[in-house]
Structures are given as structure tokens and as C-alpha cells.
Design a protein around this nucleic acid. Structure first.
Lengths: 194, 194
DNA sequence: AAATATTCTTAATCTACATTAAGTCCGCCC
DNA sequence: GGGCGGACTTAATGTAGATTAAGAATATTT
């Protein structure tokens, strides 16, 4: 298991002694998820904290007409989860699957509680992480409430330049909240205007 | 200053000794905000954590056409803030003002850091708080991406039954993401269908 | 390399919701 | 208590983006 990316990510917010790092490592597990396979499906309980080390995951809901709505992509260095399910340990309403072959590091909920008890610094780490996540959800909501589809697309490109290149267009459409047909039309209109 | 509601709220997630409670109380301040007055304006820096003890606050963005988009209401027992500004200490893009005469308890960012150092349990408390907030932002996003205006209204009513009664309709419209005119029409259609 | 599935495009038609505008009702301040 | 600004309503018209459908281009599987 390659923990470099995770340790590097953690060290941006808290610093660990060698001993603390060992305690952390003792609760880490890794897993590979093949493209199109699920990490979490609607109805299952989200029982782990998940950190992506390679590939890309996505988290999305499926509405009553069967359409997918993507909440977040998780490229390497990102955490992902259905937070309501993780907190309440009730069945998830969100799905997580792999857009490409992906490798993750995960920690079980019980081990995470043990980790908090053994090294309280991790409460701090995950607090900071959660607060950053709130900041981006607030921004995302503002964008969805106040911007046009074209502006949301622009925004997405600026925020995730690497993803725009590698993602099928329909995934981008699902994230910014339009149909693939409309995004396609929008892009061809944009390019002919130049 | 009446700290009952705050202490009760905190005790749902962590338990404090008398001494720890005293340390907390030493960093608390209270403030009254009159109806329509601002707690935070776009361009200012969000320098405090804010807990509502009476009244109602709202946090919203103003788009380039001058329209308001409400992210969250904060009735008594809720925290509120522009998280990006609070983290980065850069100018806020969100506004917070009072819908009714309101009383809050606030903690400065510096004192909050001191509190974390003195009583690490508070890292845990605010981690849990932040995680719950993420859960509701995830839900809110799903709703905005996948539900019709009527369904979002329904949802709002179930989630904040007390607010629907007391809030001007146009505030509800701004929260669910439609114009006041459309919400008005929607409601009169709904009622005549019965 | 063929077969199959998935993604992307184009275009016609449709609809949920926005915009504009006018009028009514109500609380609040001088 | 009369004027006034804000909140709500109604209705006509406009539009961003959805839906439907069909074909073309790209991947993926065998």
C-alpha cells in the first residue's frame, strides 16, 4: 500500500510523530475498484472514510426518472463519502463508483473512532477537512442558484482543468446540472462564436 | 448573556467538566442584531463563529443582477458563517443579515484556536458539527439538481415547518431557487387543486 | 476485425420557470 | 390617519434548457 499521498496530504494540516504515523498506518487498508464498479450503492451503509490514491471516483444520486446527478468527483488526493449515511449508519441515498480503475485507502468507522481516541490531533485534521468541504459546498450551491449553464461550465473548467480533459462530456453535464444534449449544443455554439 | 441553549447544544456531542465550561464561557460574547441589519457583508472578513440564540439570520449571495440567493436560515440553535472567508480570512462573498431582531453568541477566530488548544474536545465538537453540515449540503445539492420547484418547496416545508409560517414568501422563494412570482402562482395552483 | 455498446452531435419540438408590468393589500412610520 | 414602501397576486409574453429521436463517431468486448 502506498501511503505517500495520504501522509503528504495530512501533513499539510497537522504534523505527526513517527509513533502517531504508525498508529495511523495500523488502521489503513487499501482496495482497488475497477472502472464502473461500485464502492457504495444506494441502500448500503457507508462504513468507511475513503481517500483516493489513483484513478477517479464519483458520488451521485439517481432521481426517480433514473437520471444521475453528480455531487463530486474525487481524483487522487480527495476524500469522498455519503456523509449522512456515514454519520447515521443508515442506508445511503448516494452511489459511489469508479470512472477509471481506482485505488483507495480506507479506514473503518470503528477504527476512526479509535484513532481519534489515540491521537486527538486527527479530530483536528478531519475538522479542517470538513470545514474546507463546507466552503466548497457553499460555493457550489451559490453557483447552482445564481449562474447560467455556460457560466457553471466555465467555472468547472477553471476549478478542475485536468478533469475536463479526461472526463466524458456527459459526466461534466451531470455535474453542472444540464443534459448531455444541451452541453453539446452549448459547446458547439461557443466554439463557432470565435 | 444566556448560554443555556449553546451549552445544551454542545452537550449533545461532547461532555464538559465545570472547568472546561468556564474556559468556554471566557471566550463567549453576545450581540444583538436588529431586523435588516448586517452581521457580515460581502467584502468584509468573517472573523467569528456565530451561534444564534434568538431570532433568525440568513446567509445569501447577491448575483450580478442584484438578485439574492439564500443558502441557509439560522433559527435559534444553529451556527452560521461564510466558511471560505472564515478559513482563508479573505473578504466574504456572502452576506449575513437578520430577518428578525436576533441575538447571537460569537467566538473570535483567535479565541477559537485558543479554545482548541486548551480543550481539544472542541476540535471534536466542531468536527461533528461540520460533518453534519456537509450532510445537509449534500442533501440540498441533490434536491436542487434533481427536484422540481414544487418538490423543493414540499421538502422545505417538511424540513423547516416553523419557518414556513413565519417567513415572508419571497424568502422561501429565494431559498428554493425560484422567483417570488412563480412561487405565488405555484401555491395558488396547488390550493385550487384541492 | 467484427460486433456491440457507449458517447457525441444535430435538430425539431416542448415546458418549467423567468421577465415584465400592473394592480392589490397590508404594515409601519411621520 | 394618511401616505408609502414592501409583500403578494395575476397575467401576458419570453427563453433557457429538457425531451425526443435519429444518425455519426468512438470505445470496448469478443
Amino acid at each position: 500500500m502506498n501511503t505517500d499521498l495520504l501522509l503528504q496530504h495530512i501533513s499539510k494540516h497537522i504534523s505527526l510523530t513517527g509513533e502517531e504515523e504508525d498508529i495511523l498506518k495500523s488502521v489503513l487498508h487499501s482496495k482497488k475498484i475497477k472502472k464502473k464498479h461500485f464502492l457504495l450503492q444506494e441502500g448500503e451503509v457507508n462504513k468507511t472514510a475513503t481517500f483516493v490514491t489513483s484513478g477517479i471516483l464519483r458520488i451521485y444520486s439517481i432521481d426517480k426518472n433514473g437520471f444521475e446527478h453528480i455531487l463530486q468527483f474525487a481524483p487522487p488526493g480527495w476524500w469522498i463519502g455519503d456523509m449522512k449515511s456515514a454519520i447515521t449508519q443508515q442506508p445511503a441515498t448516494l452511489n459511489i463508483d469508479a470512472i477509471e480503475d481506482t485505488e483507495i485507502i480506507w479506514i473503518s468507522k470503528e477504527d476512526l473512532e479509535k484513532l481519534y481516541a489515540a491521537v486527538p490531533k486527527f479530530e483536528r485534521f478531519f475538522r479542517i477537512l470538513a470545514e474546507n468541504s463546507i466552503a466548497s459546498y457553499q460555493q457550489r450551491l451559490v453557483n447552482n442558484l445564481s449562474l447560467s449553464a455556460a457560466e457553471r461550465y466555465d467555472n468547472f473548467c477553471k476549478l478542475y482543468p485536468s478533469l475536463v480533459q479526461n472526463l466524458p462530456q456527459k459526466q461534466v453535464a451531470s455535474y453542472i446540472g444540464v443534459t448531455p444534449e444541451f452541453l453539446s449544443k452549448m459547446l458547439s455554439n461557443l466554439s463557432e462564436k470565435k
